[in-house]
């Protein structure tokens, strides 16, 4: 059993490192900062062909083309914000894994806090009633 876990763990590590090597080999940068920026942008953008993957992990041709576009733009000196807003102008907010706060997405951001407030109110109300009864 322990051997199996080790084998599975090594396979997983092998797959992960292969992915990273593939991304680095294809798109080499002169500076470490740009390389990190590239990897981070690719991880934060959704593959529009296969929506459950980011473009760093996807092998879809559109994801590869998006990687190439990001690479070219970073090399030209475009900022991360510029690159993201360019891709949003092509594909909409949908392309971002971390949604921006706007009139369509405010509920997404506010809902956890609203639920937390309701929970806190209920908890205090119950506590208050219990305290009054005793």
């Amino acid at each position: 059993m322990r051997v199996m876990v080790w084998i599975l763990g090594l396979c997983f590590l092998g797959l992960m490192s292969q992915k990273l090597i593939a991304l680095e080999e294809q798109f080499a940068f002169a500076s470490q900062t740009q390389q990190k920026d590239f990897e981070n942008i690719c991880k934060e953008l959704r593959c529009v062909t296969c929506p459950n993957q980011n473009i760093a992990e996807s092998h879809a041709p559109v994801a590869k083309a998006m990687q190439a576009e990001i690479y070219q733009r970073l090399k030209q000196g475009d900022s991360i914000v510029d690159i993201k807003s360019y891709l949003v102008s092509r594909y909409g907010d949908y392309v971002l894994y971390r949604p921006v706060m706007n009139q369509h997405t405010w509920a997404l951001w506010a809902l956890p806090f609203i639920l937390l407030a309701i929970g806190a109110y209920l908890w205090f109300a119950k506590f208050y009633v219990a305290a009054r009864k005793s």
Binding site: V48, P61, V62, K64, A65, M66, A68, E69, R90
Partner: peptide, 13 residues
């Protein structure tokens, strides 16, 4: 390279 495809916003063929 697929650059025009990205400029067009295509999601697949």
């Amino acid at each position: 390279t697929g650059q025009l495809g990205v400029d067009l916003g295509i999601v697949g063929t």
